[in-house]
Amino acid sequence: MADTRPSVISRAEVPPNRRRGGDIRVLLSPRTVASTSGFMGSLTLAPGEYVTEHYHPYSEEYLYVVEGRLTITIEGNAVEVGPDQAVLVPINARHRAENRGTRTVRAVFHLGPLAPRPELGHVDTEDLANPGERQFVVGDRG
């Protein structure tokens, strides 16, 4: 019988992943709560920050903006997503997330289904300009 006790993970418990830009934290995943169909986390982007372009060969990505305005470019088409709005990134669609505004963006993401192995789930198509440093979108003067 499966363990049905709730697993609660606090954002503060998870260190930020900044390898692709911004502050990405995977909260609910096979590693943290033994999920079997997908994973979920938070994205925080300060003004001018971005997440480099990538795609997911096995998963759809659902993004829900809690605060701020997120510009997401999917297969070359940019769309702005504001508070209480969501966007779907289809499987294999190249996408990039940017904060072109003046307020911090806070968003929630979910990806599913899972890739057969974690290393197959994410394909980078853009390198982070200066890993470890704050990343700025083109035209940002900050």
Rank of each mutant, 00 (worst) to 15 (best):
residue 88 L to S: 07
residue 90 P to V: 08
residue 90 P to S: 13
residue 91 I to S: 01
residue 92 N to Q: 14
residue 93 A to C: 13
residue 93 A to Y: 14
residue 94 R to K: 15
residue 94 R to H: 14
residue 94 R to Y: 07
residue 94 R to N: 12
residue 95 H to S: 06
residue 95 H to N: 13
residue 95 H to L: 10
residue 95 H to P: 03
residue 95 H to Y: 13
residue 96 R to I: 10
residue 97 A to G: 04
residue 97 A to M: 15
residue 97 A to Q: 15
residue 97 A to N: 05
residue 98 E to R: 15
residue 98 E to P: 02
residue 99 N to S: 07
residue 99 N to H: 10
residue 100 R to F: 07
residue 100 R to W: 05
residue 101 G to K: 10
residue 101 G to E: 13
residue 102 T to N: 14
residue 102 T to S: 14
residue 102 T to Q: 15
residue 102 T to I: 05
residue 103 R to V: 04
residue 103 R to S: 13
residue 103 R to T: 11
residue 103 R to G: 02
residue 104 T to A: 10
residue 105 V to A: 02
residue 107 A to C: 04
residue 107 A to V: 04
residue 107 A to P: 02
residue 108 V to T: 02
residue 108 V to P: 00
residue 108 V to L: 15
residue 109 F to N: 02
residue 109 F to P: 01
residue 110 H to T: 11
residue 110 H to E: 06
residue 111 L to Q: 12
residue 111 L to H: 04
residue 111 L to D: 00
residue 111 L to A: 01
residue 112 G to V: 10
residue 112 G to H: 10
residue 113 P to H: 09
residue 113 P to Y: 06
residue 114 L to E: 01
residue 115 A to C: 04
residue 115 A to R: 06
residue 115 A to Q: 06
residue 116 P to G: 06
residue 117 R to T: 12
residue 118 P to M: 07
residue 118 P to I: 07
residue 119 E to V: 03
residue 119 E to F: 06
residue 120 L to F: 05
residue 120 L to P: 00
residue 120 L to I: 00
residue 121 G to P: 03
residue 121 G to H: 06
residue 122 H to C: 02
residue 122 H to I: 03
residue 123 V to A: 01
residue 123 V to C: 00
residue 124 D to F: 12
residue 124 D to P: 00
residue 124 D to I: 01
residue 125 T to F: 00
residue 125 T to C: 04
residue 126 E to N: 03
residue 126 E to C: 02
residue 127 D to E: 11
residue 127 D to C: 00
residue 128 L to R: 13
residue 129 A to V: 13
residue 129 A to P: 04
residue 130 N to Y: 09
residue 130 N to H: 14
residue 131 P to H: 07
residue 131 P to I: 03
residue 131 P to L: 03
residue 132 G to H: 08
residue 132 G to C: 06
residue 132 G to N: 04
